[in-house]
């Protein structure tokens, strides 16, 4: 468990960081995914640029009617943010479900989504929130949607030399309830399956619903068939069940030591129903 030799830079500015990254260096955030891989020599970067040295990447703020979360905001900072608790409780709930206290103290939202582990928790919530990801390279900045950001297992829209600068999520009104339900893989703490639900009701009917699923397949996705099935319905237990049954539609489920594909699919349905139910129960 000894990493290969590497260089380390704590950059003074974002420009310096981007310059180093454009010449082949790798960003280091909380190190909770990267360092274990380096110790096993599954990753052998020659040069690490520590993004946490950049204080101006670490923020959680409201601007222009949206919430902006800097890439190096830690899971703990998100979990304990009063602003998020009030205006985007789905994200605080999700952050609180990650790993253990030590991991939440070190790990960052930017690192988690850039790493794009198929079993990571944030991607479910960020898919349901239709989050926007601000990607910055040495020359330009661009914004991509969650749907476009998560490409495959451990693969995102980030280009070499680019960093994720911030994540932007909407502020929901009081008629929206949210919930994140997760089946925990007991060894790692990651999600065998995780479902984030965001549901709005109007006059006793579901007027808007977003479901983000993680863990089931190679990357997080929105279960649009299930969303459509629930929209306009009064959300009786039957409605919920029928919608939840559709969350795995068209998805190639993963299978591993911890859960077979069939069981994963089953868990996705169960957790979708539970997340929807809880989300609705939380509508003010």
């Amino acid at each position: 468990m000894i990493a290969q030799k590497f260089e380390y830079t704590a950059p003074k500015s974002l420009d310096e960081a981007l310059h180093l990254l454009s010449s082949g260096a790798k960003p280091l955030a909380g190190g909770m995914s990267l360092i274990p891989m380096m110790k096993l020599r599954l990753a052998v970067p020659e040069h690490l640029v520590d993004l946490r040295a950049l204080k101006d990447l670490n923020y959680i703020r409201e601007a222009g009617g949206q919430l902006h979360i800097g890439a190096t905001a830690s899971h703990y900072e998100i979990e304990s943010s009063a602003l998020l608790r009030q205006k985007c409780p789905l994200l605080t709930e999700t952050a609180a479900s990650i790993g253990d206290v030590q991991v939440r103290n070190m790990g960052t939202i930017g690192g988690s989504v850039a790493h794009a582990d198929p079993a990571a928790d944030y991607p479910a919530a960020l898919a349901a929130l239709e989050a926007k990801f601000v990607l910055k390279g040495a020359k330009a900045e661009r914004t991509v949607s969650a749907a476009d950001f998560f490409v495959d297992a451990f693969s995102t829209a980030l280009q070499p030399g680019e960093i994720l600068r911030e994540v932007i999520v909407p502020i929901d009104d009081a008629r929206t309830g949210t919930s994140y339900k997760k089946m925990v893989q007991p060894a790692s703490g990651f999600a065998i399956v995780g479902v984030a639900a965001r549901v709005r009701q109007n006059a006793g009917k579901v007027s808007f619903v977003r479901l983000g699923i993680t863990g089931l397949s190679n990357h997080a996705y929105r279960a649009t068939a299930a969303e459509k099935a629930l929209e306009g319905k009064p959300a009786t237990p039957n409605d919920i069940q029928n919608a939840a049954a559709l969350v795995t539609q068209g998805v190639d489920a993963n299978s591993d030591l911890h859960a077979s594909a069939d069981y994963r699919r089953h868990l996705a349905v169960v957790h979708a129903a539970r997340a929807i139910g809880t989300a609705i129960s939380r509508i003010a």
Partner: peptide, 16 residues
């Protein structure tokens, strides 16, 4: 050994 890491070998933890 396919449970050769603590990410796959599930030890009892305090919170469990």
């Amino acid at each position: 050994l396919i449970t050769g890491e603590l990410t796959d070998y599930a030890l009892p933890r305090a919170h469990l």
